[in-house]
Computed example of a mutant assay.
Amino acid sequence: MASKPKQLLEELSHPGPHEVLRGDLALVGLPGVVFTPRAGLNLPAIAFGHGWLQPPGRYRELLRHLASWGIVAAAPATQRGPLPSHRLFAADLRSTLDVVTGVRLGPDGISVDPAKLGLAGHSVGGGAAVLAAAGSGEPEVKAVATIAAAQTIPSATAAAQTIQMPGLHLVPDNDLVAPAAGNAEAIARAWAGPVQLRTIPKSSHLGVTEGMHWSQLLLHGKPHRATQRVVRALFTAFFLTHLTGTSSYRSLLEADLKAAHLDAKLMPA
């Protein structure tokens, strides 16, 4: 019998069955980090874009969590200045997917299936993920998930109009940095493919981040354990569903959750 959404949310908010390894993308020419299961061939993978001024280390447990569920998760440490190039950041996300599919990872030769690739990001990293998804050519991306996505130059909303793959956009309800109406909500409503927009209650722009960082002096919000928990669970369910083809977690993605309210006006992904 299929598990209920609440049970799945609880299950996927905890680490998965895989032991996790951490690696340095700089060893293959791109600054950043990569987390992988200890073993596995033809694994799914995602590239994750950090938020404005944020180091990838502020998402360490999110990336580790995805890897514990069998998803290779890599985050480039580029475009971290106050005036990042969103276009170049999007290119770096695509390059990150090229890297993880082009080399064997880990001591036992972990490999990534180029047909199982996704993009994710927070804040401007979310907007850059949308730009990267709209890019043509290889690698081909199958799913995109964002949290507190911010607009970019060129426009992430305009880019969303060309994206046919499933999208998941999570919105903190108290985001004073990238308010939903002009950012994640606008991106989701422009999305050409199946899409979800969900609101996380009692959450701020920095809710998904981990630990302390000097940028909290400039940006509203702080790390929020409940936000981190629901983002980990929903990202895991979303990418396992759309990158591996499993139906085990679809009921969670289809449910209107107290921890992440589903906008009923948008088509479920």
Rank of each mutant, 00 (worst) to 15 (best):
Arg232Ile: 05
Phe239Ser: 05
Gly102Gln: 05
Ala77Gln: 03
Asp108Trp: 14
Leu131His: 10
Val124Asn: 11
Ala67Cys: 01
Pro84Asp: 02
Gly49Ser: 11
Leu62Val: 12
Trp52Tyr: 14
His224Thr: 15
Val130Arg: 04
Glu10Thr: 15
Ile200Cys: 05
Leu206Tyr: 01
Ser136Phe: 02
Leu119Gln: 07
Gly106Met: 10
His50Val: 13
Ala186Ile: 09
Ser215Gln: 12
Pro37Leu: 02
Pro114Val: 04
Ala259Asp: 15
Asp256Trp: 10
Ala158Val: 11
Gln161Cys: 09
Leu30Ile: 13
Gln54Phe: 05
His242Val: 00
Val20Asn: 06
Pro201Glu: 05
Ile200Thr: 07
Leu62Ile: 13
His242Arg: 11
Pro268Lys: 01
Gln161Ile: 00
Glu61Ala: 12
Tyr249Asp: 03
Phe48Met: 06
Leu240Cys: 00
Met267Gln: 12
Glu10Leu: 11
Gln7Ile: 00
Val33Pro: 01
Asp173Asn: 13
Ala181Met: 08
Val103Asn: 06
Ser248Asp: 14
Gly32Phe: 07
Gln216His: 14
Ile46Met: 09
Leu27Lys: 15
Ser13Arg: 03
Ser248Cys: 09
Leu257Ser: 12
Asn174Trp: 01
Ser251Asp: 15
Gln79His: 06
Tyr249Ile: 06
Gly29Arg: 07
Leu266Pro: 00
Ala2Val: 13
